[in-house]
């Protein structure tokens, strides 16, 4: 029971409280870049979620099966980024061949994810926070869903911002950042829920 609530808490806090975008600032580049259209935002968010989970599994396995036994923890960053890059590449190639439909909607976002801080960041955070295997996966899943939620909401607002009478100087990114500020202010409201 206690474990269950802990795992639930990991997912929930990934989505709302420690939102990967609004309170941890991971993956802001793609957050600001790929949120001009809701359709792309949905694709990006889903692709990030998938890659987060797969990358977490791989990096977790590599860290505890290879690095820890050989005392190579210091090589964490470099090995993780290589693993992530390889996984992203692999997913892309496989998807392109066998899941054409999915590739059209998700695959195009994959190259962007290699350099998305969220993936590497969550992989490292999982190790830093000492979550167990299941916990790591759930935290990655929660973070991915949090990314998806926020980027979709943000993109819907940005599509609306396009039509508004915003002062010339603030058009585009400045007003998007101010919007993000109030979004993260609203998310602070969830603080301490768990």
């Amino acid at each position: 029971m206690n474990n269950l609530s802990l795992y639930f808490g990991l997912v929930f806090s990934g989505i709302l409280i420690k939102n990967v975008l609004l309170s941890q600032f991971l993956g802001i580049c793609s957050f600001l870049g790929v949120s001009k259209k809701t359709s792309s935002a949905v694709g990006m968010g889903m692709a990030v979620t998938v890659v987060l989970v797969v990358a977490t599994i791989a990096s977790y396995a590599f860290y505890y099966l290879v690095q820890v036994p050989f005392h190579l923890e210091f090589l964490r960053t470099i090995s993780f980024i290589i693993i992530i890059a390889a996984i992203v590449q692999l997913i892309e190639v496989v998807m392109k061949k066998y899941m054409r439909g999915l590739y059209e909607s998700l695959g195009v976002y994959l190259p962007l994810i290699t350099t998305n801080c969220a993936v590497l960041g969550i992989a490292i955070l999982n190790i830093n926070n000492g979550y167990d295997f299941l916990g790591s996966i759930l935290y990655a899943l929660g973070s991915g869903l949090g990314f998806l939620l926020v980027i979709v909401l943000f993109s819907a607002i940005r599509e609306k911002l396009e039509l508004l009478d915003i002062p010339e100087a603030f058009k585009g990114l400045p007003i998007a950042l101010i919007t993000a500020a109030f979004m993260s202010l609203a998310f602070i409201g969830f603080g301490g829920i768990l």
């Binding site: 990114l173 400045p174 007003i175 950042l177 101010i178 993000a180 500020a181 993260s184 202010l185 602070i188």
Partner: peptide, 10 residues
Amino acid sequence: LPPGAFLTLG
């Protein structure tokens, strides 16, 4: 806090 960061940069 995070909102301050977004606001300042914006």
